[in-house]
Amino acid sequence: MTDTVTVPLLSVENLKVRFATPEGLVTAVDGVDLQLGHGERLGIVGESGSGKSVLIRTIMGLYRPGDASIEGDVVFDGRRVLTMTPRERRRIWGSEIGMIFQDPMNSLHPITPVGAQIAEALRLHRGMTRKEAAERAVELLDLVKIADPRRRSRQRAHELSGGMRQRVMIAMAMACEPKLLLADEPTTALDVTVQARILELFDSLCGEFGIGLILVSHDLGVVGRHTDRVAVMYAGQVGETGSVRQVLERPTMRYTGALLDAAPRWGRDHQVLPTPIGGQPPNLLTLGPGCHFAPRCPGATDRCREARPALVAVPGQPEHRAACWHPIDAPDPAEREVTVR
C-alpha cells in the first residue's frame, strides 16, 4: 500500500479476448486498457454483450488456453497473470485476489457449513490450524455484519437468505486479506434493500483495508454511488472512462449519455418515461468497421459508420477519456432531469 502512485495494483494493457463459436470468431474484449491503484474502486458498466464479465474473468485468469485466445497483458502486483501456470494462479486466487459472483448459491458448497468453507481457505493459504481458522471465520462473518456469526458459521448455504449468502461470499473473499476484489454483478440477484447494504459493505471494507475493487454491473446507479472511477463498455471496448463525477454528470460519449437517459428515475411533480436506446444489443459477430454504437446512435454520421473513434482525453478534463466522433457538448449538470424528493 506504499507505492500507490508509481506502481498500480493492476494494469491491463491492450487486452483482446476472442472465442471461437460455431457461428464464427467473436471478439468479446477488444483492446481494453485499465489501471487500478491500491484501495481504488473501479466500476465497469455495460449491457449484455459488452464484454464486461469476460474482461474480469480474464483478469482473474479463469480462461484456459483452449477456451479463448488472449492477447495483451494483465499485470497484477508486478506479476503477469496471463503467463502464470495453473498452480501459480490457484495460489493467488483466494489469497491475493478475491472473487464475488452474481449467484452466491452456485459458488457455495451445498453441504459444508459456511464457516468451514471460509476456514478451509484460511488453512490452505495461511496455514492456520483448524481451530484458529474456525475462530477467524467467525470474526470474518462478524466483519461482514452477519448477526450471530457463531451460529451462522455452522449453517449451510441453503439455510441462509440471499443477502446473507452474498455476505458469506464476501467474507470468504476477504478471508486472506486480498489486495484486489473482483465483483461481477454482486447484487443483481438480491432485493433492492439488501443490495444497498451489501454495497455499503464493499465501501467500508475497501476504505478500511485499502483493497482495490473492480465492480462490474449493468446498473449505472450502483456503480455511480459505490466506485471512484468508471469505465463504460460497449461491444468489447471501453467507450468512456473517468471519475464517477466526470462520466455520470458530464457524459461525453453518446452511448453513456443514452444509457443515463434510459435509466428510470422520477421527478418531484411529474413523471418521466426513460428514453430508450433504439435497436438491439450489439451482435459481436456482425460488427462494422466504424463505431460499434453507430447503428443505435441517433447522432451517427457517415464518419461514425466508417471509422472507429479512438479513446482520447476530453479537453479540459484530465483522466476523462471518451471514444466518440461527435461528443456530447459538456452539458450543464443542472439541466439533467434527476431529482428525487
Binding site: 444497498a196 450502483v222 455511480g224 455520470l248 418531484r268 434527476v338 431529482t339 424528493r341
Partner: peptide
C-alpha cells in the same frame, strides 16, 4: 405514484424508496 415516489409514509415504502434512490443516478439521498 408521485406521492409514493417522493413522500412515502409507510416505513417499508420509505426503505424501498431510499434503496431505489441510492442506486438512481443523480438522485439526492436524505
Amino acid at each position: 405514484t408521485l406521492t409514493i415516489a417522493n413522500a412515502p409514509t409507510h416505513p417499508y415504502a420509505a426503505i424501498l424508496h431510499d434503496a431505489a434512490a441510492a442506486v438512481t443516478p443523480g438522485a439526492a439521498v436524505g
